[in-house]
């Protein structure tokens, strides 16, 4: 994707800058941007390490199993007609998402997709459950939005965690929209 977007950005902005005579700004912005990227990465490094460490501890305790049990009724409603193995894989993926373990969530999600594909009668078309599963993964539901907090902290926010509650509200409303719009779509076609 960026193979297309990045050159477009560079070409239109550099040529516009040259033609509009905005060269001085353009030159200094290149160096400012590079420094900005370095500063951001250094402060991101600390928060990323802390959270990846904490989440690694979580993944080795029984918290994961307990959360899976809590999620079970919800999964039965969203995904009817699935066997127990797939149910478990889906809930592991959702829990990893909720805990903000993006790197763990993706492999777990792909495993669930493959299990669903095995039961799929039309091998080159998504089933309703698969479609719903992808749509849910395009929503972001996290207890701790770590990346955003890390960025806000690196920008010198006076209260980096103040956005946690608004993010919960916004993502719950959006996820509800997502699943209900999706359900309507597969009823009709």
């Amino acid at each position: 994707m960026l193979n297309i977007v990045w050159p477009i950005f560079i070409i239109i902005s550099f040529s516009y800058g040259i033609f509009s005579g905005n060269l001085e700004n353009l030159n200094s912005s290149v160096f400012n941007s590079v420094n900005g990227a370095i500063n951001l990465s250094i402060s991101l490094l600390g928060t990323m390490c802390l959270w990846c460490g904490i989440m690694q501890i979580a993944s080795k305790t029984s918290i994961m199993d307990k959360l899976t049990k809590i999620l079970k009724p919800l999964i039965r409603i969203i995904f009817p007609k699935l066997n127990k193995k797939i149910e478990k894989e889906i809930s592991m993926n959702m829990i990893a998402n909720i805990l903000g373990l993006g790197n763990a969530a993706t492999p777990l999600g792909l495993k669930a997709m493959q299990s669903m594909q095995k039961e799929n009668p039309k091998k080159h078309e998504l089933t309703n459950s698969m479609a719903m599963f992808i749509i849910i993964n395009t929503a972001s539901i996290q207890i701790i939005p770590t990346t955003v907090i890390a960025i806000r902290n690196s920008m010198g926010s006076s209260n980096p965690t103040s956005i946690v509650f608004p993010i919960w509200i916004a993502s719950i409303i959006t996820a509800t929209f997502r699943s209900s719009i999706n359900k309507n779509f597969y009823k009709n076609g």
């Binding site: 516009y16 353009l26 912005s29 290149v30 790197n103």
Partner: peptide, 24 residues
């Protein structure tokens, strides 16, 4: 993870910085 996103950040910061500073 941080090291793996660093090159992307450099590239995009330059591109976005140029978008902004050129006036486009």
């Amino acid at each position: 993870i941080t090291i793996s996103i660093f090159p992307t950040l450099i590239g995009l910061f330059v591109a976005v910085g140029a978008l902004r500073s050129s006036g486009i």
